[in-house]
Write a protein that binds this DNA or RNA. Sequence first.
DNA 1: CCCTTCTTCGAACGGTGTTCGTTAACGAAC
DNA 2: GTTCGTTAACGAACACCGTTCGAAGAAGGG
Lengths: 235, 235
Amino acid sequence: MTHTPWQPITPAKPARERKAPLTRDRIVDAAMELLRKEGYDGVSMRKVAQELRTGPASLYAHVANKRELDQLLVERANAQLSFDDPVDPARWQEQLKDLMRAMLGTMRANPGVARAAIGAVPTGERALRTTERMLALLKAGNLPDQAAAWAADLIPLYVTAVAFEETVQSASDWTAEDVEAFVADLRAYLASQPVDRFPLTVALAGPLTAGASGDERFEFGITVITAGLAALARP
Amino acid sequence: MTHTPWQPITPAKPARERKAPLTRDRIVDAAMELLRKEGYDGVSMRKVAQELRTGPASLYAHVANKRELDQLLVERANAQLSFDDPVDPARWQEQLKDLMRAMLGTMRANPGVARAAIGAVPTGERALRTTERMLALLKAGNLPDQAAAWAADLIPLYVTAVAFEETVQSASDWTAEDVEAFVADLRAYLASQPVDRFPLTVALAGPLTAGASGDERFEFGITVITAGLAALARP
DNA sequence: CCCTTCTTCGAACGGTGTTCGTTAACGAAC
DNA sequence: GTTCGTTAACGAACACCGTTCGAAGAAGGG
């Protein structure tokens, strides 16, 4: 209905322009940029493809699926971690805390990575370096093998969960003031509960909503975990 | 092309059949059933509506959006928790562990709830009861207010993260054998790493992959957390 | 009986991950 | 130098998703 008969059906030549070849790395680059710019939900196969001036189908020649791309993003973020100071058995607890802070740091620097990392067994080379470091610190703390191994599972789980919670909270377009207002609302809500049914919740409405945006909560968490691990150390 | 001229254009009467009125509860019921049957990804507004023999738009008169429905599901699952034995200061650590076990239990019984709960501040009435119970146990353990409050945040975070990891692992169609095979593969992968770069990872390949499907890992976690909290108790 | 208010819901919008089948490009073999 | 086979690129489509709009029916009050 739109083209006259003498026009060829195939529109002459799209003349596929010569462009830089698509590679895994270029895909991860583009995805990472998108992740930093727009968060996890901003990373879709379509947008990544568009960034590379192509269609979504082209990506599947280099990446199995979205989950694999997610894992590659986690791996890329993990690569930013580096452990300079050598393991010092006398300071293993502080060094372990430093490692957890660093892990949270990279996740904060790349918002959305936590969402991709949670519930994905990290098997990349970079993740292995982190695991190795963690195990070294735990063994320096004289933990039994099984305890060290399970701790190496527990720690990333906690750090990732914290980071994930943060990125959900600051999702999309919340400003610092929005968060503050939300926390204030929550505090008021808790304080307004019936005292006879929830006496402690009402009494602790303040502490419960304290340090929501700061690092104090996280510091508390890593203190608890480190202390708990130290309690398991062999004499 | 299908109806003859003398038929009226409008098909007489859709005669909207009289049906049980849609309510919040019926929607949550249907969603909960779907959640249990097909996991979190099986719960979509469309499928819930279909289960109720209506269209997705109908749900929005009773539920603000998907996030609210998720929270209602979490609330529903929380309602299954009950705390019968009174707080006993002498046994606060064991009682706290029991609470964590119960929380994980309800999340396991309703696969997908963890996914809905993670990163959502629980403000429902049932969630408050859990918080209250937790605070009571922590205060029984002589923890300072701020420590108790932050612990009441840390504990659900950990339990939810564990449950979420489990539901991702057992997502959709993995059988117990599949999980076992995956774990075996992972162990072999870890053991095959270069010894000079990852000595501990290689040496601990066994412990690292132990107890993946059992409760030992979780027991380890709650032991660490409880011990860490006990270390913060006021003298 | 009418008028208002609320519920229901078909249709559509703009997104998502993924697959299919065709087309273009390139390296090797003749 | 030309042909051939392999592979990367990609347009189009599929089957979904959450959400919105507007019209139609039901229900209640005056």
